[in-house]
């Protein structure tokens, strides 16, 4: 089994490296929106080790994310999904290896787990979305009218414009996730990273959020990297699919599941 896994991992890594360009080209041409000139990787991790207090959680991570990618990351709770995301976002220093980003951090749209946000804050849905624009506004500036218009547009994109005045923490789990996606879109991102966007939401919301993610990559060239502990769902939604468990990370081909 180990040999089989290693062979597969090697093949995937080769695909990820040399042959990935072709793979991405196919995906992108299928979507008909990104030229070859645009296919510089947005993020690239090479032989990266991640962890806390010198204790590695994940080792030898090689990953490249291109514009228009829809990559899923599946693994059980505590396997290091959030750790990987935090390293990509520069929130966690890496232990070794190289992380290169071809766009500024302000072009990263991050959707945290909604449970990680403090319900103590009296925030309306509109105010939560508005935060996505804060990176573009100087302290002494009034909130520009164009940005206000943009809030309405991103709320339309996630289909929740009518909830703009509602208290954010009074929304259902699925609605909260969509609002956090709207906030990330407000950043005008090139890449969006979503930490467990489908956890704690009902089946209908999972479906609509999944459709939203697919739609965003198909129509706006946005790269999306999302995680979930629901392996079948990740396999169904993502174009490419990473598995993480027990300190290891590997690519899986859609439709084929190989265990370490």
């Amino acid at each position: 089994m180990d040999r089989l896994y290693c062979a597969h991992l090697g093949a995937v890594r080769q695909l990820e490296g040399m042959e990935l360009g072709q793979d991405i080209d196919e995906i992108q041409s299928a979507r008909g929106r990104v030229s070859k000139d645009d296919s510089l990787p947005l993020v690239s991790l090479q032989n990266v080790s991640l962890g806390y207090d010198s204790e590695p959680v994940l080792q030898n991570v090689d990953l490249t994310i291109y514009p228009g990618d829809l990559i899923g990351l599946a693994g059980p709770n505590g396997s290091g999904k959030t750790t990987l995301f935090r390293a990509i976002l520069g929130l966690l220093p890496i232990l070794s290896g190289t992380v290169s980003r071809n766009c500024p951090l302000s072009n990263f749209g991050y959707v945290p787990q909604s449970a990680a946000l403090d319900p103590q804050f009296p925030l309306s849905t509109g105010e939560v979305v508005e935060m996505g624009a804060y990176g573009r506004i100087r302290p002494y500036e009034f909130f520009p009218a164009a940005e206000k218009k943009q809030i309405g547009e991103v709320l339309d994109q996630v289909g929740l414009r009518q909830l703009a005045a509602r208290s954010f923490f009074s929304l259902s789990g699925g609605q909260k996730q969509r609002i956090l996606i709207a906030r990330a879109l407000m950043v005008k991102p090139k890449i969006m990273i979503l930490d467990e966007p489908l956890s704690g939401v009902d089946e209908e919301s999972r479906k609509s959020i999944s459709e939203l993610l697919v739609g965003l990559t198909r129509h706006s060239g946005l790269a999306i990297f999302f995680s979930s502990h629901d392996v079948p769902m990740v396999r169904r939604v993502a174009d490419r699919f990473l598995r993480v468990d027990k300190g290891k990370i590997w690519w899986e081909k859609k439709g084929v599941e190989l265990h370490p």
């Binding site: 976002l89 991050y110 945290p112 403090d118 804050f121 804060y134 990176g135």
Partner: peptide, 10 residues
């Protein structure tokens, strides 16, 4: 409210 987003944006 969200230190991670604050880091990314500010």
């Amino acid at each position: 409210f969200d230190r991670d987003l604050a880091f990314l944006l500010k």
